[in-house]
Design a protein around this nucleic acid. Structure first.
Lengths: 219, 219, 219, 219
DNA sequence: AATGAATGAGGGTTCATTCAT
DNA sequence: CATGAATGAACCCTCATTCAT
């Protein structure tokens, strides 16, 4: 069995510095990459805003690429922690899916910058970069979705002829779009066109509406 | 009825050159922007590959931004033409939705580069650029979705308590993700994780699967 | 005896076009050169604003340099016409000098753009250009000043030991500075520092003040 | 009393480099700007002639504008130092004015390039630039002239009805023209027309001649 | 380990001039 | 004679990365 995705993008030296310094670098770098995108971000500016020298930054990360990937990895880590609250065994599938939608919205609201970084990563230009990211993480989620739905099928919570891989893909799509619709200003303006200014803000309504459709789709 | 928004991003001079030259510029520029992303694309390289001088390129488009937006606009135009085959009045809603999914997949396959440009435009960095694009287009699609579903509701093709705006948003999300899953290498690798190498290739199966879920969600 | 300075900077074709067209070209070119300076002025922009093609402009003037010099020459021409009102034989030297100061101020106010072009020409960068301008004109003025003062000396209007060349140089300096102080925004801000906002505007006072000082200097 | 205005146009990094390097940059930049004018000067050429990289140059000055203004400021500084020898309290007004004329001529001979830069700055095109220069300097000179003449008036060294602001303006004009006549090749050719090749070279004669006229004008 | 000065290729854009139509 | 599209060298400025201190 594969080890849990844990590519390391920083040098050893980075582990030796104080947590405060680490945090500052992360905070600044994430904000810059999120706001400017990978290509337009200036590494020297990050060092400056983080109150360290460029030399130091390069002693922690061997390239702009690695710094960026370290940020993305950190985002996955936080997502993993957030998903620890999913409890896939508790309640019905739809209880679980409801929690999933809530976690997704919360993550997108609290860690908007990470979501913007993912969007950047989904860009064709950065496909080379995204390939360096541990795809194990994604595989894990795929399997988790599939297992969740397969179990639900066995328990009779969803209809017996549900195409599990297709349903998992379908569910994943909606989760991704939900995340984008909350985090990205581009997709946020899209959601407003459909649900209006207020509808886009009312997270409960949004989640409820999607959940109802998913329920019917799966039942 | 609103006029179709059609901001013009090229200078008058561009209208005067031969269609072959125009085509070449479009083809080259689209391919470059799609492959490299807006920021990493080199305008001089585009001129070179299109066998024109930089001076000429700048006599057709006043800036890199405008060239990029002209390409994006062209993509919308082609999408509009493709959607002319939708015939929203023919058959049931689900016939229409099926055609929509087909058109989406075909567009993503035939005009992959445009799709990649849209992904780039959805990036936070380029939010300034996407705002310059005629948003009327998007509004039109939103309304089309809503009208389609409202009509279906009246005809009793979908359940009577369907939340039309939410359902339209839901449908749009799936269409967008379908497009991305076909066009972007990032999302293509995602779809493979769910449906396997073969499943991701089998467009009919993919469309059929999604359609089945949508049908149940709306019925 | 030398012919009156009449270097020609335009091609023959320029003489064949309508006076309106000629005027428009002059007006536009002068305004552009005055506002932007020689180096920063865009020849293509002049053609555009004058509603002629660049090709035509180049058929009238063989280079940017020539166009610029033609404008400068035109300015000298107008100055010559303005100085026709000087009547160096009428009244005392000081009457003549007073008229000179008036003509200078009027010229600077009515033909500000020409003055700004002269300032540009006095720049070291453009010394190559200014050398191409007929220096006969300047020589004429120098001689006129000298003759004026020599005659005054003979008539006893100025003191008998007046150093005529030096006095002519002195007078010329003041005339030049008066012109600059009216025409150029840089020197206009200087004059305000000395005479205040109002004092700088009051041309009569300005001329009177200078005249009084000149009178004493020469008497 | 007002503090001497001293806008700083260089970055901190510039203060850290060796005096030799600083000097070389100054020398090269001043020479280039003086010879070519602001607009026609090539920043990369300055870097090359100063044996530094463009990157370095831009780490010292954030733009061409700032580099230019730093040079202009340096010139004002040197002028200030030169004027320290003026000793406005020693001797009569005319002694002081004589020293002023000497200092002016010396400055124009020794720091010709700075004078050429000022001429460029007086150009309409660069009015935006000259506004960024500390205008306190100019104000200081204006006040110095006025105070000098007011004191002389009280002491009875000049006639009792002398219009001090006007006389100060008059004096300033002559000083400026003297500077230009020595430094600029354009005005140098003018002076030759009045005083002949030799007369233009004989600084003592020139200063003596002007002083005599000023004396009479003020007495 | 930390610093930050130095590098210089590269990128977007301008514009005087030419020349085919 | 008039047009204006085409050219491409040149210019200002950026920034990832290195390396001497």
């Amino acid at each position: 069995m594969k080890k849990k995705g844990s590519a390391v993008f920083h040098k050893n030296t980075f582990d030796k510095i104080s947590p405060e310094k680490k945090d500052k670098i992360f905070t600044v770098a994430i904000a810059e990459f999120a706001a400017m995108g990978y290509n337009a971000t200036n590494i020297n500016m990050i060092a400056q805003k983080a109150d360290i020298s460029i030399g130091s930054l390069y002693s922690y990360f061997s390239s702009k690429e690695d710094l960026f990937l370290a940020m993305a990895e950190k985002g996955y880590e936080l997502l993993g922690k957030a998903l620890a609250e999913l409890h896939p065994e508790e309640g019905t599938v739809f209880d679980v899916i409801e929690r999933l939608l809530h976690i997704t919205v919360n993550y997108a609201e609290q860690h908007t910058d990470f979501c913007l970084i993912y969007i950047d990563l989904s860009t064709e230009t950065l496909s080379g970069l995204s390939e360096r990211l541990s795809d194990n993480v994604e595989t894990d989620y795929v399997n988790a979705y599939k297992e969740l739905l397969a179990a639900a099928k066995e328990k009779g919570e969803v209809r017996s002829d549900l195409d599990v891989p297709m349903a998992a893909f379908f569910l994943d799509n909606l989760v991704v779009m939900l995340q984008l619709s909350v985090a990205s200003s581009y997709y946020r303006s899209r959601i407003k066109l459909y649900l209006g200014e207020d509808g886009a803000q009312d997270r409960e309504m949004l989640i409820g509406g999607l959940l109802a459709l998913i329920k019917r789709a799966f039942s």
